[in-house]
Nucleic acid binder design. Structure first.
Length: 565
RNA sequence: GGGCUCGUGGCUUAGUCAGGAUAAAGCACCGGCCUUCUAAGCCGGGGAUCGCGGGUUCGAAUCCCGCCGGGUCCGCCA
């Protein structure tokens, strides 16, 4: 409902500015603690019209005409010094609840735009660790935000099956075998780590790995079979971990396919025609405008490189979508710029947008699969669910074992997901396991708890034979905490819209927490079931609406909403 | 060395792109609240030279310049 209110504000403000003959660029609207929407436009007009901002604000307000109450959601506009403050009407509050009750928690249109989001894309040489987790959770949440905003979204996992790391893993699996008792990704990691140790101690094995890579690139069937076994085993494990996190990719795309289809060779030929190249033996280097470092697109031995295959992948993607977004770690930033420039050179129309996140490191240093220095996602999830179980057990000894396990899983995974998106991605994270496991003071459980409380009221009501009424006198809901809660419910669509436009997720996490907080305050101040019949009816509607929006925002964050906890 | 990026109460952060209303939250700390719908909750309190130094402006956490500190990239790796 908030978006409609905002459109109305834009309309009346624009009309007033025209009427008073103020030329303007933007309306400078923002939400504020002092009003429902405020405009700071008087500040920027002050310089041009050489009048104090407060005088201009006053002048504008005198020129604003608000339509009659039955045709607007604006109740009032007032100049507060230099600020022009707009306030919502009673009908806005009522309409907000009616709309949510009817099932529309947000006001969005279906859009034709199809967006491909690439995320996670961890090398299939071991299990996901907490660095990959940040990528996966950001990518998945972004996909959910865009889907909820009406876009058609496809998520892809780009499988780097042609790189040296994977060759080492395959070599290691052949040499040391796979422990079939272990989850596939962990078994592959064992072989990979052992292989790396051996390669470090004796360089003669390096040539075996290189031979393996060459034979894979040329499509040697026996080698492809060995790759297939190791990579699929590893991916099966990775998929299982992602599944636990409530993450599923629509498509897994193997980089080797672009070599086999000849796309990579075609890309190199095209770049030879269109680009500024340097040759050193058979090695080919591409000079890109504005980037000092040239991009190597073919090795001296004639084999392809990650970047070239990635170019082919992006061109392939561009033909299948209207926008594409890559979720990358900060270490890929330069590469992503080179990729973009090279795609422009190739005449590709749909260019990638990048969501870049900073690294996750451990207090002991940076993460490394190769060195075995990482906390695997599985280990982390096991521990956090275990810790969540202790908390559930402490509070709800009345529940069955299965129920307690289920709640612990929902709370634990939720806490993990929330933690990863609550801060802006450019913030470097030093991952502290103890802190991550401190379930009690997490954002997600707080929001989930509010949801469970709302469900609890509705459940107790149902048990007493009280149903949420079809219609109620919603104008009874005018206590401070009721009004604040309804206003918060109305802004979910605004938060979502901003998140989808800016590709920023932490405001969504913040919103969820704030909504939960306002519900908790309402819960404290406004008894529902013990209120008089009419008030009880209205409050039941409010509780149901809040439950829906909490459920919706949690699902956008990929977090399950428990009905009790 | 060059590029990108981060630096805000004890800790973790929001706000920075588009400069404006007393710098906003969580955790931690101190003090209150369970005969009423789940206390994973609510109420109150203390605590910040917004890394440092200049500049622009009526006004700077926000813009510009310089410096300091952390991260990262600058491979015929991925």
């Amino acid at each position: 409902m908030f978006l409609q209110f905002k459109r109305e504000v834009e309309h009346v403000l624009k009309a007033a500015l025209d009427k008073a003959s103020y030329e303007h660029r933007a309306l400078e609207l923002e939400t504020s603690e002092h009003a429902d929407i405020t405009s700071r436009i008087a500040f920027s007009l002050a310089a041009r019209y050489r009048k104090p901002p407060a005088v201009i604000a006053d002048d504008i307000v005198r020129n604003i005409s608000i339509p009659p109450a039955n045709r607007t959601l604006i109740s009032e506009v007032a100049a507060m010094g230099p600020y022009i403050n707009f306030y919502v009407s009673d009908s806005f509050l009522n309409a907000t609840l009616e709309r949510i009750k009817a099932g529309n928690t947000v006001d969005v249109d279906k859009r034709d735009t199809k967006i491909i989001i690439e995320h996670t894309s961890a090398n299939p040489d071991g299990p996901l660790h907490i660095g990959h987790l940040r990528n996966a959770i950001i990518g998945d949440t972004l996909a959910r935000v865009l889907k909820r905003s009406g876009y058609r979204v496809e998520t892809q996992y780009y499988v780097n099956d042609m790189g040296r790391q994977v060759a080492v893993a395959v070599w290691g699996v052949s040499r040391f075998g796979l422990n079939t008792d272990k989850k596939g990704d962990h078994a592959v990691a064992d072989a990979y780590i052992a292989a790396n140790r051996m390669l470090e101690s004796d360089a003669t094995y390096q040539s075996e790995v290189e031979a393996l890579m060459k034979r894979y690139e040329t499509g040697d069937e026996a080698v492809m079979k060995r790759y297939e076994e190791a990579v699929q085993r590893c991916l099966a494990g990775i998929k299982a971990s992602l599944h636990r996190l409530n993450i599923k990719h629509d498509l897994f795309v193997f980089e080797s396919r672009f070599v086999r289809t000849g796309d990579v060779a075609r890309i190199i030929e095209e770049l030879k025609r269109k680009g500024e190249l340097k040759y050193e033996g058979s090695a080919i280097m591409l000079q890109l405008e504005g980037i000092d470092k040239e991009l190597v697109i073919q090795r001296r031995d004639g084999t392809s490189l990650y970047t070239t295959r990635d170019l082919a992948y992006h061109r392939w993607k561009s033909a299948r979508c209207d926008r594409m977004i890559d979720v990358f770690g900060k270490d890929h930033e330069l590469v992503s710029q080179q990729l973009r420039k090279a795609l422009i050179l190739l005449g590709v129309k749909v260019l990638p947008e990048f969501v870049i996140f900073e690294f996750v490191s451990l207090p002991s240093g940076s993460l490394s699969t190769r060195a075995g220095r990482y906390i695997s996602a599985d280990e982390l999830m096991d521990k956090i669910e275990e810790r969540a179980y202790e908390e559930v057990d402490k509070r709800r000894s009345d529940l069955s074992e299965d129920k307690k396990r289920e709640i612990a899983r929902i709370v634990g995974i939720g806490a993990l997901r929330y933690d990863m998106v609550k801060v802006s991605p450019e913030k470097h994270m030093i991952f502290d396991l103890e802190e991550a496991l401190d379930i009690e003071k997490k954002g997600a459980p707080f929001v989930q708890y509010a949801h469970a409380r709302a469900c609890s009221i509705l459940r107790v009501a149902r048990d007493e034979g009280i149903t949420v009424p079809e219609s109620a006198d919603l104008s009874l809901l005018r206590a401070d905490s009721e009004v604040a809660l309804i206003k918060k419910l109305s802004t979910f669509e605004y938060v979502l819209e901003n998140a989808a436009r800016e590709l920023k997720l932490h405001p969504v996490a913040r919103y969820a927490r704030e909504l939960a907080e306002l519900f908790n305050i309402f819960y404290k101040n406004c008894p529902v079931l013990n209120a008089d019949e009419e008030l009880r009816a209205a409050r039941l509607v409010l509780v149901e609406c809040t439950m829906r929006v909490l459920h919706d925002v949690l699902s956008v964050l990929g977090i399950e909403a428990p009905e009790e906890m």
